[in-house]
Write a protein that binds this DNA or RNA. Structure first.
Lengths: 207, 207
DNA sequence: GTCTATACTAAGATAGAC
DNA sequence: GTCTATCTTAGTATAGAC
């Protein structure tokens, strides 16, 4: 019969290969950056030939962009895409902050992603902007809305406050893990969070 | 006479060439990162031959490290190495913050330096640590000491507070300029500073 | 000390078989 | 669709002349 010409193993194996390629690309690009990564090593890490890589992605740049866009979505959901915020505001903020810090330091991939994203933001500005749009902006908007929806917190500028909260945590992560400062300027992340909550609490009392 | 053997143009022109090389290296490394930079282009940008570059620096890595260490010193002094802090504390903090934000966004070199430093921190951890030691740590220590020396600010954990203040500003700079988010999530830097000062002021009143 | 010319290696991308 | 083999360019580093 005619259908026999297409056996089970070869019909549309593309989706599978694409996934393999992206996995290999992730390993290599996150470890060595764009310029430091060779397509040979990507192919090897993916377990396919170089020609197969080029049959699914136009060139090195196309593969890189596809990977980063994919990772941007994934990272956002992993860190801030949890359950909706409910409960006593300051306690909620403490929990969210603690979870975010923990998630960032647990996930080794996250530090590597930040390195590549920031490191290549000069040569791939559109890519950086995609990440701003799909990670940073949604986080800031969610935080801002949460702060604004709790007038008892007496926050004049929720948008600016959201930046302060997020910035403090992300910068802490950058100095400690991304830049390997843990042993040079050691500090428990909880102190950042405690101090921020303390500030907010006093701010409520003073208003 | 014997001294004539050494004419004016050739005796010890090294320091001059070294400076040229470092200038060229800065231009190239800051624009393209470590792996993306070729020694050919460094030599061309420096206006010397490639062999001359190699006669002063062991290899590409050695040149890169020399450059980054040099820049770390320079950047710190440029942004935070100003006059000692005097005057009403909250007003001093506002001025320092404003100056820092302005300096960071004015100096195009600074964004490029952050990109390279963070981007290469995975492959050059020692280099990242040198920058933590010569830039971030001194800044945090100075801030902490300032905060601690003004008990009227009623700050329980000056060290953590220093991190919050610095982190908010640096993260703002990263999102707006380094990651090109200015048009996506626009905001005047003053709002960050105003909000932080407002928080500190209310914190004083509540204590 | 500095240059020109070159050895050697690796990388991006593709042609052609199956 | 996927592979092996290959073309071509570009990069690091050095040898040898001046």
């Amino acid at each position: 019969m005619i259908r026999a010409k297409t056996n089970e193993m070869e019909r549309e194996s593309s989706p599978e290969k694409v996934e393999q390629i992206l996995q290999g690309a992730m390993q290599e690009f996150l470890a060595h950056g764009f310029a430091g990564t060779s397509m040979d090593r990507v192919a090897a890490a993916a377990g396919v030939s170089k020609a197969t890589v080029y049959s699914h992605f136009a060139d090195k740049e196309g593969l890189f962009k596809a990977l980063i866009e994919r990772l941007a979505r994934k990272k956002f959901q992993l860190i801030f895409g949890s359950e909706p915020l409910e409960g006593e505001p300051l306690e909620v903020l403490r929990q969210v902050g603690t979870r975010a810090l923990e998630q960032m330091s647990t996930d080794q991939e996250h530090s590597a992603f930040m390195r590549v994203l920031i490191g290549e933001s000069g040569r791939f500005p559109e890519l950086a902007q995609i990440c701003v749009n799909s990670m940073i902006k949604p986080t800031l908007v969610a935080l801002k809305k949460y702060l604004a929806s709790h007038p008892e917190l007496k926050i004049r500028d929720p948008e600016a406050m959201a930046r302060i909260l997020l910035g403090s945590l992300v910068h802490f992560h950058i100095t400690q893990e991304v830049l390997h400062g843990e042993n040079i300027i050691p500090m428990k992340g909880d102190r950042i969070i405690d101090t921020m909550i303390d500030l907010l609490e006093k701010s409520v009392r003073a208003s």
